[in-house]
Design a protein around this nucleic acid. Sequence first.
DNA 1: AGTTTATCCATAGATTAATATGGCATAATA
DNA 2: TATTATGCCATATTAATCTATGGATAAACT
Lengths: 208, 208
Amino acid sequence: MDKLTLKQKRILDFIEKHRVENTYPPTLKEIGDNFGITIGTVQDHIYALQKKGHLERKKDIARGFRVIKSQEEEFFDKNKTDTELIPLYGNVAAGEPIFANDNIQGYITMEKNSKGHNIRFALRIKGDSMIDSGIYDGDIVIVRKQDTAEDGEIVIALLDDEATVKTLRNKNIKAYLEASNSKYKSIINKPFQIIGKVIELRRDYNVI
Amino acid sequence: MDKLTLKQKRILDFIEKHRVENTYPPTLKEIGDNFGITIGTVQDHIYALQKKGHLERKKDIARGFRVIKSQEEEFFDKNKTDTELIPLYGNVAAGEPIFANDNIQGYITMEKNSKGHNIRFALRIKGDSMIDSGIYDGDIVIVRKQDTAEDGEIVIALLDDEATVKTLRNKNIKAYLEASNSKYKSIINKPFQIIGKVIELRRDYNVI
DNA sequence: AGTTTATCCATAGATTAATATGGCATAATA
DNA sequence: TATTATGCCATATTAATCTATGGATAAACT
């Protein structure tokens, strides 16, 4: 990858920019028109770009360019691709399905999970029952779907057909759920089902 | 966006796949060759795809296709491209520079900011002085660099050469910083400099 | 000094690629 | 049933695009 002259760099950038914007690379003429030079001159530049290893080209193929990216650029692209969007669900009233499509309030960008495809989703917290654990009304919790959890972990549980955020206590003896706010009483010995475990919390401060 | 027939869908997919793999879309002939049909037939399919709103095409332009993506697909693409990594700094002792390269603990994936290039960084919280605001030891705050802030906003301030997280109070009269924990006393009438404003909080729950 | 590199131009093919037409058969739809 | 959409072919024409050549100047390099 020899170093490029300013002109060569500009032409290379134009080819890539054109490709991104139009979905196809430019022709020799289009390049020439953009820089106010003739096709013959463009040929010279293309030849130089190829020789220096910054551009590949298919013979006799219209618009047959491929811009070769540097390692840095590849890296930058790579970390751009290793993210995914997970759905953000609003809080649901008792009896209503949580994972309904029309309950999706938006999407949260997250890094892709390396190991396996464990399914995650986000849930907006309603109420202050977890305030003593530093989870406030309006916060968003990222949840990993699973049906078991350890003592002390914060879980999303289905209780009386309603999804709630609680701390799991004494799982193996008589499991109950603890609301992290002293004014709420904890739920003991009620049947519940664990939907997932809270793995992250996000709070947006209103920013204009 | 009318519904496509199987054949039409396959041709559309081929165009997009070809574009991604080669950096440029195929010609009519290349499409025909791939499916074992003639150019005339391809023209028919292209016409149908255009009429149904799945494909755009520039007249008289070689390989001048643009595949129109559904909202879902746009979404999927968006998360691939519109993110960036922001540096996560550890807490620093008094006098040491915060933004030193060897103070970078990692990187946080975030959605790119649409408006302008305001610079953001992340900081890991040390101590419990902001616990009453639900910011705990070990939490990560996302900070937008700026040197002013409004009353009540949580800011990163440089105070006695140390970066601290505080709530800003009475900015215009006698500004002081408030620690959100009753056992800490607020800092009044000391000179300080605002580095940035907290725009988001993230907390990771230890997950194996 | 001689050679290569980088920029330019002009022009004449040769080939690729798009467009225009017309025709045919079958399935879906009004 | 009449009409439209789908899926296919063949061929001629026009336009786009690439390739090849030759020439020129100035700067950088050997």
